[in-house]
Design a protein around this nucleic acid. Sequence first.
DNA 1: TAAATATATGAACAATTATTCAGATAAGAG
DNA 2: CTCTTATCTGAATAATTGTTCATATATTTA
Lengths: 112, 112
Amino acid sequence: MGKDLIHENLAKQVKNKMLSDDLLFDIAEVFKIFGDSTRIKIIYALKLSELCVSDLAFITNTSDSAISHQLRILKQAKLVKSRKEGKVVYYSLKDEHVIKLFEIGREHAYEL
Amino acid sequence: MGKDLIHENLAKQVKNKMLSDDLLFDIAEVFKIFGDSTRIKIIYALKLSELCVSDLAFITNTSDSAISHQLRILKQAKLVKSRKEGKVVYYSLKDEHVIKLFEIGREHAYEL
DNA sequence: TAAATATATGAACAATTATTCAGATAAGAG
DNA sequence: CTCTTATCTGAATAATTGTTCATATATTTA
């Protein structure tokens, strides 16, 4: 006896309306970037001001190296951008989208 | 020689304006829940309809057990709610907040 | 050119986590 | 009561990931 679906029609309809696995994967990837304390701290700090690596390390009580690693991830995810001035690299948020996403997560966190 | 801050005043000002570590941690936790393919699929499916465990397993091509584990996480995070009817447990999204968060993540994913 | 500084990087390690598997509950059907 | 079905659960495994440490690169300054 094969396994029967409890709500066959409904389940098949929903399955047909699902977004592509690729897109759902990408959406999860975006959230994954926000889902780390250090990166969230960096994002919030950059929401307040453009900052360099050592500023961010000081602000978040983390090592320069850890910050640098996380900034690379944030940059690859196109959430932050950077500009170099001499030895110093200044980072800032890429666009308003990032702030919007942060704020909605913040609202939800308040509700818990 | 102690390590000097490159932008002492700015960095200290930003540090003073930072949200509490606890709140930033909670915000990251919310995003972490969304940051998994299986959970994102569940959330999107539940956006389309109230569904039971085996429906979700069929729709997402995952085992009942894996779905059940993830639903527990989603419920603890207050992103989904459930009601029981006989042997079957029906799950649905907790509120519009969840949809809003999903949609903004989706917008960002499109831009990549 | 040599020393100092800001940032970046690769490897190793520890911690977290998603899935699987076996089995436990709970509820309806025969 | 027994069998089947839907869901849940705990332990084990495998994979991912964040930090640290040592070192490399790049730029300024002495």
